[in-house]
Amino acid sequence: MVTIPQLQAVLDVLRLAERLKFELRHSYTSSGRQESVAEHTWRMSLMAVLMEPYLDKSIDMAKLLKMIIIHDLIEAEAGDVPVTEMMRNPALKLIKQQREIEAIESLRMRLGEPLGQEIYELWFEFEEKITYTARVANAFDKLEVQLQHNEADISTWEDIEYDLSFMMGRHVAFDANLELLKDLIEAQADQKMRAAGADTVAIRTRVLG
């Protein structure tokens, strides 16, 4: 039987999660505004639902969706640090990691046993990217980011994002159909960059060698 303190903890975390509706990411939408963390997570979840029948292996869909929904929940406390900023300043990666660990430990304490521990373990499984489920979740994370960039006006792209468009391969190499999806999304990016006058052959050569 659930207790009032357990339900209150759930409400507290839902209240915290509301911040993700206005915690902005670097990516822009096709309408010209910055997207929120919550919007990114929602489309990752939809991507999982639509791609699940086409994955190379069967997967625990409930676990996959939990992992996707939870993976950015800690940004309600830790905030979002764009990968472009971490590439310019590698020290930010360590700061980000420490803040996120503190945030997931805080969530575990808020929710208590057993729910807090489940969320804690799912978050670390995603971060470690060892299991098939975690690797699929990570692939959707990277693919959704690029898909959103493709839909944004290219004037919002930073120079490094031209290179990042061709760097998704290592995130999908374990699954043939995710590689095909990556190829389609990459082709969209290539077309968008060429339309803007970019030499995508030179960019691809620089990135991939």
Rank of each mutant, 00 (worst) to 15 (best):
E161P: 04
N177L: 01
N150E: 06
D159V: 13
M167C: 06
G169Q: 14
T156I: 12
L178V: 09
L164Q: 07
E158W: 09
F166S: 11
E161D: 07
N150W: 07
D163M: 03
L164M: 15
S155V: 12
F174Y: 11
M168G: 12
E158F: 12
I154G: 05
E158I: 07
N177S: 09
Y162R: 11
G169M: 04
D163L: 07
I154E: 00
G169D: 13
D175P: 11
Y162E: 08
G169Y: 10
A152K: 01
S155T: 14
S165V: 08
V172P: 06
M167Y: 02
E158Q: 14
M168F: 00
H149C: 06
F174N: 09
D159E: 14
L178Q: 05
H149N: 11
S155L: 06
D163I: 02
N177D: 05
G169P: 05
L178G: 04
Q148H: 01
H149W: 06
G169F: 05
I154H: 04
A152Y: 00
W157E: 00
Q148W: 00
R170H: 09
S155Y: 02
H171N: 08
E158G: 05
E161N: 07
W157R: 04
H149P: 01
S165I: 04
W157D: 00
S165H: 01
Y162W: 14
T156W: 10
D163Q: 01
D153H: 15
T156S: 15
N150R: 10
A176H: 11
N150Q: 09
D159H: 10
S165C: 10
D153M: 10
E151L: 13
S165M: 07
E161T: 09
M168H: 11
Q148Y: 00
S165Q: 01
M168L: 08
M168R: 14
E161W: 02
L164P: 03
I160F: 06
N177T: 07
E151D: 15
S165G: 11
D153W: 12
F174L: 10
G169A: 09
H149D: 02
A152C: 05
S155D: 13
L164A: 08
T156A: 13
N150T: 10
N150P: 08
A152P: 03
H149R: 14
Y162T: 03
I154W: 03
S155W: 01
H149E: 01
E151S: 12
D175Y: 14
E158C: 05
T156D: 08
A173T: 12
A173Y: 12
N177E: 10
E161A: 04
E161S: 06
D153I: 05
L164K: 11
Y162K: 13
E151I: 01
W157L: 08
A152W: 00
A173H: 13
F174H: 15
E161I: 07
G169I: 00
N177M: 07
L178A: 04
Q148I: 09
H149F: 09
M168N: 11
E158A: 12
E158L: 15
L178W: 03
A176R: 14
N177Q: 13
F166H: 08
F166R: 06
D153F: 09
E158T: 10
I160S: 02
S155N: 10
F174I: 09
Y162V: 09
E151H: 12
R170I: 10
N150K: 10
A173K: 15
